[in-house]
Every structure is written in C-alpha cells, then in structure tokens.
Design a protein around this nucleic acid. Structure first.
Ligand code: MN
Ligand code: MN
Ligand code: ZN
Ligand code: ZN
Lengths: 143, 143
DNA sequence: TTATTAGATAATAATCATTATTATTTAAGA
DNA sequence: TCTTAAATAATAATGATTATTATCTAATAA
C-alpha cells in the first residue's frame, strides 16, 4: 500500500490526513520486525520531534480498526504490531523478543486445510512459533 | 497428571508442597477454559478464603517454569493460562474472550509438517483462531 | 517430638504499559 | 478566509502484574 492509497483509505473512512498519521502509518505498514509502540514513537520522533506517544497509540488503534495491522499482545513484553494479515508464522525468540515472519505457500495451504476441517470462519489468526534466535542460542547454550 | 504425580514433580524440583499450591495447580491443570489469574483466585478462594492473589501469580509462574502451563498474553484482556502444551488451536472470541481448544490429529500432523519445512526446533507454539462465538454472533449480527 | 530454617504466604506498595482527559491546534469544507 | 469537528500534545489516571516484607510453615534432623 503506497502513500496515495493510504490517503484515499483514510479519507474514505472520514479520517483526516495529517503528517503525523502518514508518518506513523508508512512506518508500521512497511515494517518487517513487528515494532512496539515505543519503537515506532522513537523512530517517528526523528522526523517529528514534537510527536506524542499518545498519537502513536491512537493511530495504531485506527489501523487496527481498518484491519491493516494486528496487535500481538504478550505477557512478558509490550505489544508488537504486525502489518501482515495473511496466514503466516511469527517466529519469536523468547529471550530477546526478536520476531520475524515465516511465510511459505505451504503454511497458507495447510492452515486453510485446518480451517476447512474446523468449519469455522476466522476473522483473523495468530500463529506463533517460539524458538531461540541464533544470537541468543549462542550466548547461553544451556542456561 | 494426578495429585501424587504433581507432588512428586514439585518435590523433585525442590519446591515445597503446600495446600495452596496443590489447590491452584489442581485447578489450572484440570481446566478447559483457559482461566485468568483473577478467575483462578476467585475459585481457589472458595476453599482457601485467606489466599492471596500474589500466591496465585507466583504459583502460575512456577508452573510456567516447570513447563506445565503456557501463559497466553493479550492486548485487550488479562493473561489466560493454558495447561495444554501439545500443538492445538485456541479458538478465541474477540468480543467476550471465550477460549476453547480445537484438537484433532490433523492439526498436529499439519503443524509438524510446517515445522519440518521451517527447519526450526520450536520450544512451544501458540495457534490462535479468532472468531465470534455463537452467543456473541447472535447478539449483534453485524455491528 | 521438638527445634531449626529456608522457602512460602498474605498483605500491600510499586511499576509501567496503556488509556483517558483536556487545552490547543489544524485539516477540510463552505 | 472562516468555521468547526477532529486531531494532537501533554499529562493524569488506570489496572494488571511484580516487588517487597513481615509472618508463617513444610521439611529436615537433632
Ligand atoms: Mn508477523
Ligand atoms: Mn488451549
Ligand atoms: Zn534472541
Ligand atoms: Zn463471544
């Protein structure tokens, strides 16, 4: 989704187009590492030093309502935001919190097969696989 | 896991066996509805009126360390606790928070196939499927 | 059985991510 | 340009979870 599409999408839903919104949306929608609200805040601050953390939260909420991002809640860290809504696996390191997507045709295919079996109509899904990342597994092989 | 197995497990790890622990462990390990800490607290209180919520949290932490329960963190509600560690799908209603397990041989089989494909060694997984429960979908068909 | 003590519990304070509030600013339309 | 409803920035409030600490007790051994 490019900037023009984003602007059209916001206007069509009656939301005003502000520079802060564009900046936050662009950042999260193009992100690959599932950033937290604080990380987004620190990043956008580089361009908009006066931006408020509250605005970041409000905009993330807006993107959730539009179905453009999913909020991933955790018990041991703050929420992370994911712009990828198609069925995929979030590979998560339980030690450092690093998250990346594993996407493959087979993941979608097998997931849809399971869905068919359940007979349910999912609004969305969240598939997490917890495994130590390379960095963390080297640091402390067997803690 | 029966009471005797639980007691042996606790003792073997150097943990003391207390009535509060037994009560909390029994409750969560036999639960099917993924209760919250508060719900566990309210339930155990019926038998142990003097129990502290802090003890519930400490015991749940202990069970996590022992690998007997998984904590499911959410962004819009407090954490829920799941004693089922085998690969299965948590069917979650985003409106009322109801959670139940969908377990079928195919889920495990297809999940293991995905794992093999990734080449990763998962410590654990979390497979969430969000869909309105019957009750909620009747109450407000299209909100 | 009783004494010892490390660990557990109950009560409660502290934390901190997130949400709510409000005065000020601004995008959008007339 | 003017109007105004919505957005922003600043900040206070919330609430689930964690930390602290004074008792209490399960486990061990005299
Ligand atoms: Mn993802
Ligand atoms: Mn479950
Ligand atoms: Zn890591
Ligand atoms: Zn429901």
């Amino acid at each position: 989704m490019n900037e023009q599409q984003l602007i059209t999408r916001l206007r069509s839903k009656g939301y005003k187009v502000t520079p802060q919104r564009i900046a936050i949306c662009q950042l999260i929608l193009s992100s690959k590492d599932h950033p937290s609200a604080e990380q987004i805040y620190q990043e956008v601050k580089k361009t908009y030093p006066a931006i408020s953390l509250a605005t970041v939260y409000i905009t993330l909420d807006l993107l959730k309502k539009l179905g453009l991002v999913q909020e991933l809640g955790f018990s041991d860290q703050s929420s992370r935001y994911d712009p990828n809504n198609s069925p995929h696996i979030n590979v998560i390191c339980p030690r450092c919190g690093k998250i990346y997507d594993y996407e493959a045709p087979n993941v979608k295919k097998l997931w849809y097969r399971i869905i068919a079996e359940t007979g349910l109509k999912p609004l969305r899904q969240r598939l997490d696989l917890y495994t130590l990342c390379n960095k963390c597994s080297q640091e402390n092989p067997t803690p």
